[in-house]
């Protein structure tokens, strides 16, 4: 078994990926017929087996409830962020204070850093622009930041702390 599929191959190498793939299959077919459910679960079981070698790290979620709460906060922030950005665009472009900010990272894992960058892009007036080579700093561009340190503090406290709690508890 492990000769073909890689070192970690068990019967269910990625317990999280199987339900995700199955539900994507059901959504794609837009049906809940028993046949589709069986086919979806089968695909969700086979695809992780064959793609095991492409997954660089094993994802482990330590606190699912914290993840759910974080997702709620992010969804709310997306809506608020859109209002804020819309107001800034409709206002006077001359009065904006764009800024580049260096956010020091406490996260280590690839997935956690990627999620943080994604969330930063989706929330108020900030776009993640570059990760430093030593993975210590994330360069962030803010649309309107008269006070850069406040934005950095918000990002660290509102988004990075929950992610750290979910993926890398000490």
């Amino acid at each position: 078994m492990s000769k073909w599929f890689g070192p970690r191959a068990g019967l269910l190498p990625h317990p999280l990926l199987t339900p995700i793939l199955a539900s994507i299959w059901l959504l794609l077919n837009n049906s809940l017929a028993p046949g589709q459910i069986v086919l979806g679960l089968l695909l969700g079981w086979v695809i992780p087996l064959f793609t095991l070698r492409f997954w660089p790290e094993l994802v482990r979620i330590h606190k699912p409830l914290a993840l759910l709460r974080f997702l709620g906060v992010v969804l709310l922030d997306i809506v608020l962020a859109n209002m804020a950005v819309a107001r800034l665009i409709l206002g006077r472009p001359q009065s904006l204070h764009p800024a580049f900010l260096d956010v020091p990272l406490a996260l280590k894992g690839d997935l956690a850093i990627g999620l943080l960058a994604n969330v930063i892009c989706l929330t108020p007036g900030t776009v993640s622009a570059r990760l430093s080579p030593d993975r210590k700093f994330l360069l962030v561009h803010a649309l309107d930041a008269p006070d850069g340190d406040a934005v950095i503090a918000t990002i660290k406290q509102r988004y990075e702390a929950p992610l750290k709690e979910v993926f890398e508890p000490c």
């Binding site: 859109n82 665009i89 764009p98 989706l122 561009h141 649309l143």
Partner: peptide, 19 residues
């Protein structure tokens, strides 16, 4: 169209359009 440099222009489409 309205904003004045590339980095500020980046903000409009990525946020407003997703919502």
């Amino acid at each position: 169209v309205r904003l004045r440099d590339f980095f500020t222009r980046l903000h409009g489409p990525t946020k407003a359009t997703t919502l």
